[in-house]
Amino acid sequence: MDYMTISDASERWGISRRRIQVLCTEGRIEGAVKFGRQWAIPENANKPSDARIKTGKYIKGDIDL
């Protein structure tokens, strides 16, 4: 299996390297493995969907801002 670096995935998917690191840490990129301090992402991995809150409404708790 061929792997790509976080920088390669960043260019391919159009998102920051830091965001990809977070996705790898959260286990949201299927097949990503960590070797020491670096992540290896499978070449055929799909870009995960954006699960961040976009509506401005919080799911848990009643916080008024």
Rank of each mutant, 00 (worst) to 15 (best):
S16P: 14
I53V: 14
I59M: 08
I41S: 00
I63W: 12
I59Y: 09
D2M: 03
K47R: 10
M4E: 04
I29M: 02
V33S: 02
Q38C: 07
A45I: 00
K34F: 00
S7D: 07
K57N: 13
W39R: 02
D62L: 12
Q38D: 10
R37D: 03
A32T: 01
V22G: 03
R28L: 14
R12N: 05
K47M: 06
T55N: 13
T55A: 13
R18K: 13
E11K: 13
M4W: 04
C24Q: 04
S7K: 06
G27C: 10
K47P: 05
M4D: 03
K34I: 01
G61A: 11
D64G: 08
K54A: 10
I6L: 06
R19L: 14
T5H: 06
Q38T: 11
R18A: 10
M1E: 02
P48C: 01
D64N: 08
A51N: 14
I59A: 10
T55R: 13
R52H: 14
A51H: 15
S7N: 08
I29P: 04
A40G: 04
E26P: 11
D50V: 14
G36Y: 01
I29H: 01
Q21K: 08
I41K: 03
E11D: 10
R17D: 04
S10D: 09
S10L: 10
G36P: 04
R52C: 13
G36L: 02
L23C: 11
L65D: 12
S49R: 10
F35I: 10
W39L: 01
E11A: 11
W39C: 01
G31N: 01
Q38G: 07
Y58V: 14
R12E: 08
T5Y: 05
V33F: 00
I6K: 05
L23S: 07
I15N: 04
N44T: 03
S7A: 11
I15W: 06
P48N: 00
K60H: 15
Q38N: 12
N44I: 02
N46F: 05
M1T: 05
E26D: 15
G14F: 06
G14A: 07
I53K: 11
S49A: 12
D8L: 05
S49W: 08
G31A: 01
W39P: 02
R52K: 13
V22K: 09
S7F: 11
R19S: 14
A32K: 02
I20L: 07
M4V: 04
G61P: 11
S7C: 09
I41N: 02
D50S: 13
I41D: 01
K60C: 15
S16K: 14
G27L: 11
S10N: 09
L65Y: 13
N44M: 02
D50G: 11
Q21D: 08
R37P: 10
